[in-house]
């Protein structure tokens, strides 16, 4: 039976159920167990935001605190995965990837290929991303396009609690390295989630909302921005279809094309910086593959080409909001061939 839980609880439950089901699943990272200063095991912090809270007491020896050395523990995860475990390592903020990128892109991502398919690397790296909590330029970036670029990695960016649980379970059971992006602003968002374990396959988009006028492809937290924009536009008689790719690699291109072939218009909403982003990638794919169906130029709604500002006023302007999404939708409709008068 489904009941309402938060995005954070959904991820915690996925980890707990997989640890229960498969004893090769281990969890580690900075403060994942409790960290310095926690009064005891029962009150262990469970990560900087509490996502792994409660696991340390339930699965002794399988939830580990690591030193502050991403290079060491991400490398340990790659090695553990290659030798029989299913590690879930936590890179606290994705902004810290620079110090451990070799372990990810040139080691873990290459094992299957370099060993002629004889090696598997069933590791998950959970990582927080996104602006909105006044954490400044070094803790607020949306860097999933960088990982999406690399063959050999799978990249998951869930937008809601139901998907977060099913995608986390699928990521843990997957035999390739998966980078699992958790938008920190979504942690408190509630949704209906079944108590049972379930998998959502990596590489299948979700149609969040159906409509015939404009396709909005939105990623992660941007799905809710697109929904708010679509609500506002509905009052103007514009029906938006919202496609949530759920994973940026593999990308469910077919689902996007199917929608654009119907609507003829595309807006992509992506919290990352605009150049070489998911927005530019999807806009290019659609331009190449759906050109004959397009009634207007695809529009991209992204963060600007700057670091995330620390100033609250500027940070609020930095993240795409429903007004910007709606404005982009109106621009695609600005041509004279609009179907509904």
């Amino acid at each position: 039976m489904a009941r309402r839980i938060t995005f954070m609880q959904a991820i915690n439950e996925a980890l707990a159920q997989e640890m229960e089901r498969d004893e090769t699943v281990v969890v580690f990272g900075e403060d994942n167990a409790g960290g310095a200063g926690a009064p005891g095991e029962d009150d262990a912090w469970g990560g900087v935001m509490g996502v792994t809270k409660g696991l340390y007491g339930k699965y002794p020896g399988r939830v580990l605190d690591t030193p502050i050395s991403e290079s060491a523990f991400v490398g340990a995860a790659a090695g553990a995965a290659a030798s029989g475990l299913r590690p879930v390592a936590e890179l606290m903020f994705v902004d810290f990837f620079g110090v451990c990128m070799d372990q990810i892109y040139n080691q873990a991502a290459k094992f299957r290929y370099m060993f002629g398919g004889k090696a598997v690397t069933p590791m998950v790296i959970r990582t927080m991303f996104g602006a909105g909590i006044r954490a400044a330029a070094q803790h607020s970036q949306s860097l999933y396009p960088i990982f999406t670029h690399i063959p050999g990695l799978k990249v998951v960016v869930p937008s809601n609690p139901y998907d977060a649980k099913g995608l986390m379970i699928a990521s843990i059971r997957d035999d390739d390295p998966v980078i699992f992006f958790e938008n920190k602003v979504l942690y408190s968002v509630e949704g209906d989630v079944p108590e049972e374990s379930y998998e959502i396959p990596l590489g299948e988009a979700e149609y969040v909302r159906e409509g015939d006028d404009v396709t909005i492809v939105a990623i992660g937290r941007m799905v809710s921005m697109a929904e708010q924009a679509a609500d506002a536009l509905e009052d103007e008689g514009v029906e938006c279809e919202i496609v949530d790719p759920r994973t940026t690699s593999p990308l469910d291109e077919e689902a996007i094309y199917e929608s654009v072939e119907n609507t003829g218009r595309l807006v992509v909403v992506d919290e990352s910086n605009p150049r070489c982003s998911l927005a530019s990638d999807i806009a290019a794919l659609v331009a190449q593959n759906c050109f004959d169906h397009l009634k207007a130029a695809p529009r991209m709604v992204t963060a600007p080409h700057t670091p995330p500002p620390f100033s609250p006023a500027l940070e609020d302007l930095y993240v795409p909001d429903p007004e910007r999404v709606a404005a982009a939708v109106r621009e695609t409709l600005g041509t004279s061939d609009r179907a509904r008068a």
Binding site: E196, S197, Y198, E199, I200, E210
Partner: peptide
């Protein structure tokens, strides 16, 4: 409809 397909898949994807 897509919703019918989604509902059936949500059931099918439960473990067991």
């Amino acid at each position: 409809t897509r919703q019918l397909v989604n509902d059936v898949l949500a059931y099918k994807r439960l473990d067991g």
